[in-house]
Amino acid sequence: MWIQEGQKIEIQGIEDGFYGAWFFVIVSKTFSEKCLVKYDEFVNENDNSKHLCGMVQISQLRLVPPNINNTSWVENDVIEIYEFNCWWVGKIIHHLLCETKYVVYFLESSGEM
């Protein structure tokens, strides 16, 4: 199996409002097609010392991608932006020429930033 207990990986959200986003998790226990994970950034609303845990499909998981320090994105590049404790997939739709800022269209939510 490509994942191991204690490994930091990412899980793709399937819930409303988080569909398509990627979250950091730590693998607690592996099974044949599922694993128990602990969310790195999300805690129990009644007890902030306890991280949220859940059983997820292995098909929802991916390795943590490498850091890329690219400062020359172009229109139509597909990127991920870290916002609200997770990664969101978007596409560059406009480069503000006077700055190193971009307008990004988010693929799952159909919103822009």
Rank of each mutant, 00 (worst) to 15 (best):
K91A: 10
E15P: 04
I9R: 10
S49W: 08
N44T: 03
I79L: 06
E80W: 01
V37A: 06
F18Q: 09
I14A: 06
G54L: 14
V74E: 15
V89F: 05
G17F: 05
F23P: 04
Y102L: 07
I14T: 03
I92T: 09
V43G: 04
P66F: 14
V78S: 13
D47W: 04
G90I: 05
F42H: 15
F23E: 05
N44W: 01
W22T: 00
V89Y: 02
K34R: 11
E15Q: 08
Q60R: 15
L96V: 14
C98G: 14
D47V: 04
I68C: 13
Q7N: 10
I92W: 10
F42Y: 14
S28M: 13
Y39P: 04
L61M: 13
I26F: 00
S72F: 12
Y102D: 05
W87D: 03
F84R: 01
F31P: 09
E83P: 00
N67H: 13
I81G: 06
S59T: 08
K8N: 12
E80F: 02
A21Q: 11
Y102H: 00
I79F: 06
I81W: 01
N69G: 09
V25W: 11
F42W: 14
E10R: 13
S49Y: 06
C86G: 05
Q12G: 04
S72T: 13
C35K: 05
G6L: 00
V43S: 10
L96W: 12
T100C: 08
V56M: 11
E33K: 01
Y82S: 02
N85Q: 09
L52D: 07
Q60M: 15
T71F: 15
G90S: 02
G20R: 05
H51F: 06
N67L: 12
K91T: 11
F84Y: 06
I81N: 05
K91M: 13
K91S: 09
R62W: 10
I92Y: 11
N46D: 15
L63W: 07
D40F: 12
K34F: 10
V37Y: 03
W88N: 00
I68V: 13
V103F: 08
I79V: 08
Y102E: 03
H51P: 01
T71D: 11
Y82I: 04
K91F: 09
N67F: 13
V89C: 03
E41T: 03
I93V: 14
N46I: 08
D40R: 09
V64Y: 08
I79H: 03
N70Y: 00
K34I: 07
C98H: 12
I81Y: 04
V103D: 08
Q60L: 14
C98V: 15
N44M: 04
G54T: 13
Y102G: 02
E41S: 07
V27I: 10
V27E: 02
E41I: 04
K34D: 10
I93C: 12
K50A: 03
V27Y: 03
E10L: 14
I93K: 14
N85K: 09
Q57C: 03
E99D: 13
N70G: 06
I58F: 00
C35M: 09
Q57G: 08
W88L: 00
N76S: 14
E80N: 09
D77W: 01
N67T: 15
E33A: 01
K101P: 06
N69P: 00
V27T: 01
Q12D: 06
S59G: 06
K8A: 10
D40I: 09
C35W: 06
